[in-house]
C-alpha cells in the first residue's frame, strides 16, 4: 500500500513520519508528474488552505486530484485539508476540491490565542485532539457521518471514502485515526 501526501505547503512531513512509523510506503506530491505513480490513498495535511489552493491550481494538480477523489480514491484531510475538501466555506464563495458535502468555518476558534488541545471521542474512542487555528463543520450533508463532536461543534466527518478532521492527529502519539483511514482503504469498493 502506498499513500500520497500532498506536499505543496504545510505540515506534510509530520504525516510522512507517522506513515513511516506505521510501516507504510508514502509519496510526496508536489507536481503533476508525481501523479504518474500509483497511490492507494491521499493525505491532505495541515497548513494554510489559501496557499495550498493557489499552488494546486498553478501546479495543475487540482483537477487531476479532484478526479481521483470523485473516482473513489480514499482521502484524509486534516485541518486545512478539511477545508480543501469542503463543498462550501463560510463567508467565501470559493472552494477547492468541493467533494465533501459539508460547510466549514475557517479559523473558527479565532486567532492563535484560540488554539487548544483536548481529549474527546472520535468514533467512540477517546483520543488527543490538537486544534491549531482550526476550522469546524457548520453543516454536514445527508450522506456525511459525524465522527467527532467537541463542545457541540462537529470536528471529524466521513463521507464514503473521504475522511476529514479539524484537528491534527499527526501531532499526537495516537495512531487510531490512521488505522481508521487504512481500514477505509482496505474496504474500498
Amino acid at each position: 500500500m502506498r499513500i500520497g501526501v500532498l506536499a505543496v505547503q504545510g505540515a506534510f512531513v509530520e504525516h510522512i513520519n507517522k506513515l513511516r512509523q506505521l510501516d507504510t510506503d508514502c509519496l510526496e506530491i508536489r507536481k503533476r508528474s508525481d501523479l504518474s505513480k500509483n497511490i492507494n490513498g491521499l493525505i491532505l495535511p495541515g497548513g494554510e488552505s489559501t496557499a495550498m489552493r493557489k499552488l494546486l491550481v498553478e501546479l495543475e494538480l487540482l483537477e487531476p486530484l479532484k478526479k481521483m477523489i470523485t473516482d473513489g480514491l480514499p482521502v484524509f484531510g486534516t485541518c486545512a485539508g478539511m477545508i480543501l475538501l469542503a463543498k462550501e466555506i463560510s463567508d467565501s464563495d470559493t472552494h477547492c476540491f468541493g467533494t465533501l458535502d459539508i460547510t466549514v468555518k475557517r479559523n473558527a476558534y479565532g486567532r492563535q490565542l484560540g488554539s487548544f488541545r483536548c481529549i474527546d471521542k472520535f468514533d467512540g474512542k477517546l483520543i488527543e485532539m490538537p486544534f491549531i487555528r482550526a476550522p469546524y463543520a457548520r453543516r454536514i450533508g445527508e450522506n456525511v457521518k459525524n465522527l467527532a463532536t467537541h463542545e457541540d461543534r462537529i470536528v471529524a466527518v466521513r463521507q464514503d471514502n473521504q475522511l476529514a478532521t479539524a484537528f491534527h492527529p499527526e501531532l499526537t502519539n495516537d495512531t487510531y485515526i490512521y488505522e481508521y483511514f487504512f481500514d477505509i482503504i482496505a474496504k474500498k469498493k
Binding site: A11, E48, Q112, R117, I132, H168
Partner: peptide, 18 residues
C-alpha cells in the same frame, strides 16, 4: 507548556511556505 507546544505547532503549519 501546552501553550508553548501549540505555538511550536503553528510554526510547523507554516513550513514550506513564504
Amino acid at each position: 507548556e501546552e501553550r508553548y507546544q501549540l505555538n511550536k505547532e503553528l510554526a510547523q503549519m507554516l513550513k514550506g511556505g513564504v
